[in-house]
């Protein structure tokens, strides 16, 4: 049980870290329109509308031992932990991306412009203006992605295969326990996940509140 839960946490941590590194810069760029933005966003938000099994199925085809990724790049990700990280990250992408986008949108462009006129180059603007103002938004988006990845089932099952000791995580473990009618154990595991999820979502909400008050209108328009 502990091992399965730890793997779940590791999967959630790894996939949300990937999202912070990939989705946050993309969300920052999307503040302004660029050619093809609608198409790019459609692809990025697609996992919202896809059954996880469909996403998992195509990923499996891509990542399979004889699949295109293995042939072209030379590594196999199917039924491995990195493959699951990729799947979970893709599936949580819309949630993280939307949260990051909102965080950046709440940033008043006049602050960045004024920082320029005050002599601050791109590095200082990012470090001293953007990050201090958006970090609660980024953190809450990442926590949301973390919570989402923790509860992921379909993609993880398809790509990971629920191999005990290798790719079995809390959600697939509970599914197996129920299938084997070991309801007492299933109950224990479910309760643990429930408490964890509750704590995470609560933390996310509190951060959002705090972030809203930090970026609230400053002085002049009162």
């Amino acid at each position: 049980m502990t091992e399965v839960l730890l793997r779940s946490l590791a999967l959630a941590a790894a996939s949300s870290a990937v999202l912070l590194l990939v989705a946050a810069p993309l969300a920052y760029l999307s503040r302004r329109p660029y050619p093809g933005r609608t198409l790019v966003e459609t692809l990025l938000l697609l996992p919202l509308a896809l059954p996880p099994t469909v996403l998992g199925f195509y990923l499996l085809l891509l990542l399979a031992p004889e699949g295109p990724v293995a042939r072209l790049l030379g590594f196999e990700l199917a039924f491995s932990f990195p493959g699951m990280v990729l799947g979970a990250a893709l599936f949580s992408f819309p949630f993280a991306y939307t949260a990051y986008r909102e965080a950046f949108r709440a940033l008043d462009p006049a602050l960045l412009e004024t920082a320029r006129t005050l002599g601050a180059g791109p590095g200082r603007r990012l470090r001293e203006v953007v990050l201090p103002l958006v970090w609660p938004g980024l953190l809450s988006g990442t926590l949301l992605a973390f919570a989402h990845a923790l509860g992921e089932f379909g993609v993880v099952l398809m790509v990971g295969g629920n191999i005990p000791g290798r790719t079995q995580v809390a959600s697939t473990y509970i599914y197996e326990l129920v299938a084997r009618l070991e309801l007492e154990k299933a109950h224990q595991a479910s309760l643990t996940v429930l408490v964890l999820a509750l704590a995470l979502v609560y933390l996310t909400r509190s951060l959002e509140e705090r972030w809203r008050s930090a970026t609230g209108s400053p002085g002049p328009t009162r």
């Binding site: 008043d108 412009e113 970026t215």
Partner: peptide, 17 residues
């Protein structure tokens, strides 16, 4: 903008909150 010897005060002031 970074190198112009001007001080700019936008209408909403843009003080760093």
């Amino acid at each position: 903008a970074e190198r112009r010897p001007v001080g700019y005060l936008p209408q909403n002031l843009a003080l760093f909150p």
